[in-house]
Design a protein around this nucleic acid. Structure first.
Length: 426
RNA sequence: GCGAGCGUCGCCUAGUUGGUUAAGGCGCCAGAUUGUGGAUCUGGAGAUCACGGGUUCAAGUCCCGUCGCUCGCCCCA
């Protein structure tokens, strides 16, 4: 297709019936969030570019090479959001929502934008659901959010996903680990892959992320953050584990789990789905106790996660999980001639007023074609109006599931249907 | 940014060593007794074979370029 317009690279149209699946994921997520006492927050799609550089870290890939940065007509440097947390944190600070002994609990459903080569499960405009909690720093919150996270997958019927857990330490214990790690890696620097050699200077932690087998071996014995936790971080992590165990949420400690963004502290987790291929991360989360302060707010602990909708859908598909069909059920109101056709439009409107879905034919088709259409729409009932019905004042109502048919006075049809449970035809 | 594969009706695909009207399935439309769906049968509409150029008597089939898609690297959701 060289001619004509196309959706920009890395973007996609989400059309029926697939949009129904999206609704299912989103609705399920909202319900889960409600249960945990989180409320929706909506922040701008674009922010000052500096917010992301500051919050996420300008050495990260996201900021250094993936942001959709642009200058508006007023000369401001703006960026489409590459992730959700920074904007939420900015709103938290801007509206001075911090308070002693108060937690701000919000969730969001957003599009994120990253300029990358599209690939399996990766888009330039991707969609995430996420949750953030500001103001509470204890491991109980960590457990709650992880539980919420897993509850979403559970409610969706997902199977085969794995929770990975780690602790990255805090400003108190990180330097010690970093030093130990750098010196350990310095000895084998020449054996590391080129990119990892570069990481030694910028962010040695990222070496843990490297997928090259050689680096993997070298790093296997390198000091992990977990081994250098200070007392505070250690007891936080232990307490979290006790809670997760108590909730019977299975997880795996992954000492090599590192997050791509700078703001994470202490608890970090990831949910993986092995069969997704190169992009196997379903979601990532963690604690970021320094972020709010970093953005000019009061020292406030925070924690959250973001999960990809596209990847969740693929994982559900691979797992053979069926999602409820939308749009089925309802009534097809059929008119056969000028007069009954007109009446069918009005009757459909009456039926809708009773809370049912009702549709009519737009193309002056014959009875047979309209019945076929009823079937295609998944309608449960067909209401037929023709010369006979108009004369007798009784509509012919057919149950498309059983095939039973009866006459119902025209005035009462809408109510008659409204009293019946409407389920999709098979 | 780098590497590989692919691009034929709305969707999925066939298309022999380049050779006459590009085939099939799904879907769509219409019929198969007068006003009745889901099954079956019959017929029909629908393709400048991504785009541009080249080789050739002749290209969907070969070559080059462009665009797009897909997968992998990188990184992440």
């Amino acid at each position: 297709m060289a001619k004509g317009y196309q959706a920009p690279r890395g973007t996609q149209d989400i059309l029926p019936p697939v949009s129904g699946q999206w609704h299912h994921l989103e609705d399920t997520f909202r319900q889960v969030c409600e249960r945990y006492g989180y409320q929706e927050a909506r922040t701008p799609v674009f922010e000052e570019a500096a917010l992301f550089a500051r919050g996420i870290g300008d050495a990260t890939d996201i900021v250094s090479k993936e942001m959709y940065v642009f200058e508006d007509r007023g000369g401001r440097s703006l960026s489409l959001r590459p992730e959700g947390t920074a904007g939420i944190a900015r709103a938290f600070v801007e509206h001075k929502l911090a308070g002693e002994k108060s937690a701000w609990k919000v969730f969001y459903l957003i599009s994120i934008f990253r300029y990358e080569r599209p690939q399996a499960g990766r888009y330039r405009q991707a969609h995430q659901v996420g949750v953030e909690c500001f103001g509470a720093g204890g491991p109980d919150v960590d457990a709650e959010i992880i539980a919420l996270n897993m509850a979403w997958y559970r409610d969706l019927g997902m199977k085969g996903h794995e929770l990975r857990l780690n602790s990255l330490g805090c400003p108190a214990c990180r330097p010690g680990h970093r030093q130990a790690l750098t010196s350990a890696l310095a000895d084998v620097a020449e054996e590391l892959c080129p990119t990892c050699q570069g990481r030694l200077d910028t962010n040695p932690l990222r070496v843990f992320d490297c997928k090259s087998p050689s680096c993997g071996e070298l790093v296997a014995n390198a000091p992990a953050p977990l081994d250098y936790l200070c007392d505070g971080c250690r007891s936080h992590f232990d307490a979290l584990r006790v809670l997760l165990d108590g909730m019977e949420l299975p997880y795996e400690i992954d000492p090599r789990l590192v997050r791509g963004l700078d703001y994470y502290t202490r608890t970090a987790w990831e949910v993986k789905y092995a069969e997704l291929g190169a992009q196997d991360a379903l979601c990532g989360g963690g604690r970021y106790d320094g972020l709010v302060e970093q953005l000019g707010g009061p020292k406030t602990p925070g924690i959250g996660f973001a999960a990809g909708i596209e990847r969740a859908l693929v994982a559900l598909e691979k797992g053979g999980i069926t999602m409820p069909e939308t749009g089925a059920g309802g009534v097809m109101v059929i008119g056969l001639d000028e007069a009954s056709r007109q009446r069918s439009v009005l009757l459909a409107e009456e039926i809708r007023a009773h809370g049912l879905r009702a549709e009519t034919d737009y193309f002056e088709r014959g009875l047979k074609a309209q019945m076929k259409q009823a079937d295609r729409l998944g309608a449960r009932w067909a209401v037929m109006l023709g010369e006979e019905e108009m004369a007798s004042g009784e509509a012919t109502v057919r149950d498309l599931m059983s095939g039973d048919q009866e006459s119902v006075p025209l005035e009462g049809v809408a109510g008659w249907l409204g009293e019946r449970v409407v389920t999709p035809a098979p």
